[in-house]
Amino acid sequence: MLLEVDDIHVHYGKIEAIKGVSLQVDAGEIVTLIGANGAGKTTTLKTISGLRPLTSGRVRFDGQDISRLAGHRRVMVGIGQSPEGRGVFPGMTVTENLMMGAYTRKGDLSKDLDEVFELFPRLAERRNQAGGTMSGGEQQMVAIGRALMSKPKVLLLDEPSMGLAPMLVAQIFTIIKEINNRGTTVLLVEQNAQQALQLAHRAYVLETGRVVKSAPAADLLDDPQVRAAYLGGELGAH
């Protein structure tokens, strides 16, 4: 088991946002967390990457308990995150943004940089443009590429499809598949359940801070309850 979240509880002040979520991610998998707004998907991801402290429970990574490890140290053990709302550094160029992703690494990084540019040719064209002046899709590419620059064992993606045109969403999802094929484990948080389930191997459904269902992604695509709640009303909900 690469990443193991064991019965975590997370509070915002007195409000309990996560009420005992447990999930596992195996090396090489794409696992997705789906659920409505406010279900606790982003909070779960932030707890794994260390941006939120947990009240109780455990997060284990690669056999090591990282529950109390500072966020910036979790990058070094192999957790890379593309944060909610992309979090691109607006004043830095594309290259500078990507190099920030390799902040904890030393030595020659040009090979890694080339690899990201190969994955996202669009970014290579715009390598000297300021991050803040790019379109939403391009910023998403920067955010994913930047997370890859730390050579993570697991890549945490927080709603990569948010605010993007359908064609761009398809493109981003293809690239996520490619990243996974190259050996990086992916934990994907999505509201776009349809596409996330088609991409992922396994899925967890979150509802008001609890896991209500976990199954292979393909099974959930056919699950009548899930279809009714997350797949049928897709057009109306967004």
Binding site: V75, F89, M100, T104, S150
Partner: peptide, 22 residues
């Protein structure tokens, strides 16, 4: 490196933290 870390913190503190900036 310190200056780069400051710039990252100024522009997006959470993103800086998940890049490994203390």
């Amino acid at each position: 490196r310190v200056g780069r870390a400051w710039a990252a913190i100024r522009e997006d503190e959470d993103a800086a933290e998940v890049m490994g900036v203390p």
